[in-house]
C-alpha cells in the first residue's frame, strides 16, 4: 500500500546555512599569466593568511568552480568565515610579487 500523502509541515531556518557562497573574478594586469585552479586556491589561502594569520589560512574554503579563461570562480566558505574571506580577498593586492589585482565579488546565494 502506498504511504499516505505528506502532511503539511513548515520549517523556518534563520541564518542556519552552514556555508556561504561567493562568485569572484580575478583581475590581473595585461600579460600576466593566468593561474590554474590550484594556484587560484593557493592565492585565496595566501590572502587569508596575510590578513587573518594562520587562523585565517586554516579556514575551510572550497573553489567549487574555476574558469581559467575568465579567471572567475565560485567559492564556498563556512558561514562564520564569510566576512573574513570577503575582507581578505578585497584587501589582497599582490600576485607572484607583482602588484595587480582586484577581486570583485558578489554573493550568488547564501542558501
Amino acid at each position: 500500500m502506498a504511504p499516505p500523502p505528506a502532511a503539511f509541515e513548515r520549517r523556518v531556518l534563520r541564518s542556519a546555512a552552514e556555508h556561504h557562497y561567493l562568485r569572484v573574478r580575478l583581475e590581473l594586469p595585461d600579460g600576466a599569466a593566468r593561474p590554474s585552479a590550484a594556484l587560484f586556491k593557493q592565492l585565496v589561502v595566501t590572502a587569508l593568511r596575510e590578513l587573518h594569520g594562520e587562523v585565517g589560512a586554516a579556514l575551510p574554503v572550497d573553489v567549487l568552480t574555476y574558469e581559467e579563461k575568465t579567471m572567475s570562480a565560485i567559492l564556498r566558505v563556512i558561514s562564520s568565515g564569510f566576512v573574513k574571506l570577503w575582507s581578505a580577498l578585497t584587501l589582497l593586492g599582490f600576485y607572484q610579487n607583482r602588484r595587480y589585482i582586484s577581486i570583485s565579488s558578489c554573493i550568488i546565494w547564501e542558501q
Binding site: 505528506a6 513548515r10 520549517r11 541564518s15 546555512a17 564569510f82
Partner: peptide, 10 residues
C-alpha cells in the same frame, strides 16, 4: 554572517 532565511515546506 549576514541574516538569511530558508523556509522549507512539505
Amino acid at each position: 554572517t549576514p541574516r538569511h532565511l530558508l523556509v522549507c515546506e512539505k
